[in-house]
């Protein structure tokens, strides 16, 4: 029963959504699929609580056992529950809540996100080597786009802007589309396997 019930639920839910997409039958199109989608939104919200619970378990244990970086576990728990409490007490539009958001979360996250720029440039330097003609083609194209997207490149050679636009619109989009079609078919295939109960990896058991 541990496997059968989730498989039956997957089949009913998946088939209703698929039928709701194709068939103009009010039960599938409106009642079943709309209700199921609304339920899915609620279930997904519960997943956030599940995540918070898991985080609490790991960090309470770490702090209690004085594990690695345990003071950070305490900071994390204080922030997690303190901010949650503040939000519940004063509401998300409250000025204190917003102050913490704008003063701590935004700059912190933006700082880490900006590391991407540093990493991308240093990784490009390390890996863009003209080892063979294919690598040369890739690096050459990349340089045209890198320069063509910014003012300095366009000032050096005005044709770089349109060239970069052309590369992005045609060869790039064509390649991307090919990958997307393949990946979409993979997704359909996986979805079918789950709906039909063939794929059971997500139930924690070997298929």
């Amino acid at each position: 029963m541990r496997k059968e019930i989730p498989i039956a639920v997957s089949f009913l839910a998946g088939a209703s959504i698929v039928l709701g997409f194709f068939l103009n039958v009010p039960f599938f199109k409106v009642t079943a699929s709309r209700q199921l989608l609304n339920w899915a939104v609620i279930v997904a919200a519960f997943a956030l609580a599940l995540g918070a619970g898991n985080l609490t378990r790991i960090h309470v244990t770490n702090a209690a056992k004085r594990g690695k970086h345990w003071p950070y576990s305490i900071i994390l728990l204080v922030c997690l529950y303190g901010y949650l409490g503040l939000g519940l007490w004063r509401g998300a539009s409250d000025s204190i809540y917003q102050w913490w958001f704008n003063g701590a979360l935004v700059p912190g996250n933006s700082t880490v996100f900006s590391l991407n720029g540093f990493f991308i440039i240093s990784a490009a330097y390390r890996t863009w080597r003209l080892r063979n003609w294919r690598a040369a083609l890739l690096v050459g194209t990349a340089i045209l786009v890198v320069l063509g997207r910014v003012g300095i490149g366009q000032a050096m050679w005005p044709a770089l802007g349109p060239i970069s636009d052309w590369i992005m619109t045609y060869p790039n989009a064509a390649g991307m589309r090919g990958i997307m079609i393949g990946a979409a078919l993979g997704t359909i295939s996986l979805g079918l396997r789950i709906i039909l109960g063939i794929e059971r990896g997500h139930l924690g058991v070997e298929s």
Binding site: G51, A52, N54, L55, I58, L105, G108, N109, S110, T111, V112, F113, L115
Partner: peptide, 9 residues
């Protein structure tokens, strides 16, 4: 481990 959150932090 679950290390949750979808932000850079």
């Amino acid at each position: 481990r679950f290390i949750g959150g979808f932000s850079s932090g």
